[in-house]
Write a protein that binds this DNA or RNA. Structure first.
Lengths: 132, 132
DNA sequence: CTGCATCCCCGCCGATACTG
DNA sequence: CAGTATCGGCGGGGATGCAG
């Protein structure tokens, strides 16, 4: 059989860890988008402590604007990482919590956080060496 | 002792995995920037197969522009993830390879790739459910 | 073969003000 | 309390052309 599995009509394919991807529709990029956003990971890590209300997140995630908090929460909910429950109190309150998918993701994510803490010094030094 | 360790002069602090961060100067964000770029992770994963020349990377990473390949490679080199060796042949050739730091990073990165492959379906389904 | 420079579009994100 | 709407800056990144 041919090497590049299912290469149709000039679709270019990259092999990553034994799996074929096209530049578009790349699961890796799709997931990394959640890691990439400026606030996404911070919010997920904060929710790892337990369910939180909107205002609690606003307090605990420093310097995030209301706009970004709302938007990022909606993105995370849309992708299934967190759930959103509205309590019809007066005034209303909304509670956000990790889903199973979100917890599963954090399990993989946390080692990356740990690695960042451990190797940030080496990276900053590499930068200084490169710039000088 | 006080809760928020070392909160000075209105500097807001977030606790993540037992470590205090400010919104600026956050190691996690700094490292995630490397994961976030559109091409960074793909290049690192390609180099995991072994050292490659510029033109080889251009071939194996589909649809990347020359500009982005050059730029991303320089960023990765600057942060110490890859090395760059110039062979004064005619015409010259340049070989890129993972450093120890790069390999260390990939060790942590790969589970995230695996997770992406396994859970991409669930995420796309969550999206459809949310949108509909 | 490798890399740099230029132009330009577009989406992220911040600031601010306004609703149920 | 939670969310929406609007404006605007800034930077990532694609296309193209030039240079050692």
């Amino acid at each position: 059989m041919d090497k590049q599995a299912g290469t149709l009509e000039g679709e270019r394919v990259i092999m990553v860890m034994g799996e074929p991807f096209t530049a578009d529709n790349c699961p890796v990029r799709d997931v990394l988008a959640n890691v990439a956003g400026k606030w996404n990971s911070l919010i997920l890590l904060t929710l790892d402590e337990g369910p939180k209300r909107f205002s609690a997140l606003r307090r605990e995630v420093p310097d995030i604007s209301q706009r970004m908090l709302t938007q990022t929460l909606r993105d995370l909910q849309r992708d299934g990482y967190i759930s959103r429950e509205v309590f019809p109190t007066k005034p209303p309150s909304v509670e956000y919590a990790l889903t199973d998918l979100g917890r599963s993701f954090l399990t993989i994510m946390k080692p990356l956080v740990t690695w960042s803490l451990e190797n940030h010094g080496a990276i900053r030094e590499a930068r200084r060496a490169f710039d000088g």
